[in-house]
Simulated scan of single mutants.
Amino acid sequence: MSQFRNNKILIIAPHADDEVLGVGGTMARFAAEGAEVYVIIATKGYPPDYSEELSTTVRNQALVANRLLGTKETQFLDLPAANLDCVPYRDINHQLVEAIRNIQPEVLYIPFNGDLHIDHQKIFSSALVAARPNRINAPSRIYAYETLSETNWNAPYLTPNFVPNVFVDISGYLEMKIEAMAIYASQIQPFPHERSLEALRALATLRGTTVGRFAAEAFVLVREII
Score class of each variant (00 low, 15 high):
Ile123Glu: 00
Thr57Gly: 07
Arg90Gly: 02
Thr159Asp: 15
Leu63His: 05
Asn152Cys: 07
Arg29Asn: 03
Thr43Phe: 01
Ala127Lys: 10
Asn113Cys: 09
Pro111His: 08
Val39Asn: 01
Glu106Gly: 07
Asp78Val: 06
Tyr109Asp: 01
Arg59Lys: 09
Tyr50Ala: 05
Ser55Pro: 05
Glu73Asp: 13
Ser149Leu: 10
Glu73Leu: 14
His120Ser: 04
Arg135Lys: 12
Gly45Trp: 03
Thr26Gly: 00
Ala32Asn: 05
Gly34Trp: 05
Asn102Ala: 11
Asp115Arg: 06
Leu128Phe: 08
Gly34Phe: 04
Gln61Glu: 15
Arg132Phe: 08
Glu98Trp: 07
Glu150Thr: 10
Arg67Gly: 12
Lys72Phe: 06
Ile142Pro: 02
Lys122Ser: 14
Ile136Ala: 12
Ser51Pro: 05
Cys86His: 15
Lys44Asn: 15
Pro88Asp: 13
Thr57Pro: 00
Leu84His: 01
Leu116Trp: 09
Gln61Arg: 03
Glu33Trp: 03
Ser140Asn: 14
Gln104Cys: 00
Val37Gly: 01
His94Gln: 15
Val39Ile: 14
Pro105Met: 10
Asp119Ile: 03
Val97Met: 12
Arg90Gln: 11
Pro156Val: 04
Glu33Met: 05
Thr74Pro: 04
Leu148Thr: 08
Gln61Tyr: 04
Phe30Gly: 00
Thr74His: 04
Pro47Asp: 03
Leu128Lys: 10
Glu73Lys: 15
Val129Gln: 08
Arg101Pro: 00
Phe124Trp: 14
Ala81Val: 10
Asp119Met: 02
Arg90Ser: 12
Glu36Gln: 12
Glu150Asp: 13
Ala32Glu: 08
Ile103Leu: 10
Ala144Cys: 13
Pro133Lys: 14
Thr43Ala: 06
Gly34Arg: 07
Ile100Cys: 05
Asn137Asp: 05
Pro88Tyr: 13
Arg67Phe: 05
Asn93Asp: 09
Arg67Ala: 06
Trp153Gln: 14
Asp115Gln: 11
Pro156Cys: 06
Arg90Cys: 09
Asp115Gly: 08
Glu98Gln: 15
Asp115Phe: 02
Trp153Phe: 15
Pro48Leu: 03
Gln121Gly: 11
Asn137Cys: 01
Glu150Arg: 09
Thr151Leu: 06
Ile136Gln: 12
Leu108Tyr: 04
Ser140Cys: 14
Ile142Trp: 08
Val129Ser: 10
Ala35Asn: 02
Arg29Tyr: 02
Ala144Phe: 02
Phe112Cys: 02
Arg135Trp: 04
Glu73Thr: 13
Thr159Cys: 09
Ala130Tyr: 00
Leu128Ala: 04
Glu33Ser: 04
Glu53Tyr: 10
Thr74Ile: 07
Ala65Pro: 00
Val97Phe: 06
Asn152Pro: 03
Tyr145Leu: 08
Val37Pro: 00
Ala32Asp: 07
Pro133Arg: 14
Ala82Pro: 03
Ala81Ile: 06
Tyr143Phe: 14
Ala144His: 02
Pro160Ser: 11
Asn102Trp: 07
Ile142Thr: 09
Thr43Pro: 02
Ala65Met: 04
Ile92Asp: 00
Ala144Val: 07
Glu98Arg: 12
